[in-house]
Design a protein around this nucleic acid. Structure first.
Lengths: 226, 226
DNA sequence: CAAATATAATAGTAATACTATCAATTGAAA
DNA sequence: TTTCAATTGATAGTATTACTATTATATTTG
């Protein structure tokens, strides 16, 4: 299943980059080390100059791939959502029981990435941490509406819509499928963040995971309830 | 009820500022116009120089109140959470029925601020919009653990804990009171953001509000369920 | 082998995020 | 009423950021 991705390529909206980083060694190095450097120093302190130093390359060369660090972040988040969408589709495709399908879907979108699938230069475990810490910054900007029109958030919206469809199939009369789907996806990241930095205001610790929390929630909300 | 606040002062952890902006005219002007300017140009484009120009004051004078724009954002978010906590306490205090109390609590923490209470220089309607757009940036930084130790997020954590208490009182055997409380508070802001910028992935439109969504959710989850 | 392309090196600009110094103003206490 | 302290303003300066532009040097491809 996972091996499929060594053949398939995760595709990111092409307007996000100037030159596709997948098409060259330098491009792949930029992606690989931007993930590592973002994890190390955070988005606010991250610069192309520092990244250049890390990979023994010039700042100006990186600018030929991405016009700003914001675009690079958009690239990484889009890649992550595409990767997650792929897993959601693969892992739920053949499940016919709608309740089981929903349960699996929640598991896929709320679980912490803990294993690097190693088929590429992208370390998914670290990328997941960057998603938890930085992904909100990719859309919480003054340019969001323009960028949305350009299609930068298509993959994310498609992922939410897929989860909404699975929810609605499991419970057709539920009114808030989209809101529930978007809440689960963002909420799981937030719970993961709280666990790390504000453990006093989450129950996701001591063996309890965001998956447990949201599975319990959705089960009670949609399946058990009257 | 609202008039109480013209006597009481909302108090923000004193380590956040260098000089308390409430103690001078310039300080109040800084707060008032930082809210307006943040709304206008967003946190990334906001600078003390621009704020100085707006209020006819010097950049260096503003630095005497806040050591950075990040600290100013922390001030504004803390102020907002304190204000919300105040409302939560006042509006739920005298409700003895636990279900009603929970319902009111959810209403308070999920409703959009639409009215400026006018007892001060702070425009709560615009501040609410800033919270929706920018509040995540106050904690999604590399310095979060240090700042948390300094107590910068105490009010926020206390607010979540208050909601958790009300949840747990209404349903003592529910395991995820903290996670539910933190999810509701962040989730309501997120739904408000989606409504504005990504309406295709939320149901909060056409008269449906985040309050409706979360009330329905909590009711089914905690009250109706088996 | 030539031509095209990619990368590197260097320089330069305007803005940011401050710090430091000193002068002018105000207001409160002696 | 002076005076002393605190506040604010004005100016200057620094290191860094977020780029753009130009030119030189490799490398790849046709």
């Amino acid at each position: 299943m996972k091996e499929l991705l060594s053949v398939l390529k995760i595709s990111v909206p092409s307007k996000i980059y100037i030159k596709d980083p997948e098409t060259s060694e330098l491009g792949k190095k930029i992606i690989k080390h931007s993930i590592l450097l973002l994890q190390e120093i955070g988005f606010e302190n991250f610069t192309f100059k520092k990244l250049g130093a890390k990979i023994g390359s010039n700042e100006s060369s990186i600018y030929r791939y991405f016009e700003s660090k914001h675009k690079l972040l958009l690239y990484l988040t889009s890649w992550y959502w595409a990767w997650l969408e792929y897993q959601l589709v693969i892992e739920t495709f053949s499940i016919s029981d709608k309740k089981n399908k929903l349960e699996k879907a929640i598991e896929v979108v709320t679980r912490e990435t803990k294993e690097d699938s190693k088929y590429s230069h992208i370390n998914e475990v670290i990328l997941y941490k960057i998603i938890v810490n930085e992904s909100s910054k990719s859309f919480l900007t003054k340019e969001v509406d323009v960028e949305n029109k350009e299609g930068y958030f298509e993959i994310y919206k498609r992922l939410v819509t897929r989860l909404q469809q699975i929810i609605t199939e499991a419970k057709p009369d539920y009114k808030y499928g989209f809101s529930l789907a978007s809440t689960i996806i963002e909420g799981a990241l937030h719970q993961c963040y709280l666990k790390e930095h504000f453990p006093t205001i989450t129950d996701c610790k001591d063996g309890e995971t965001p998956t447990d929390f949201f599975n319990d929630l959705v089960l009670k909300l949609l399946i058990d309830g009257k």
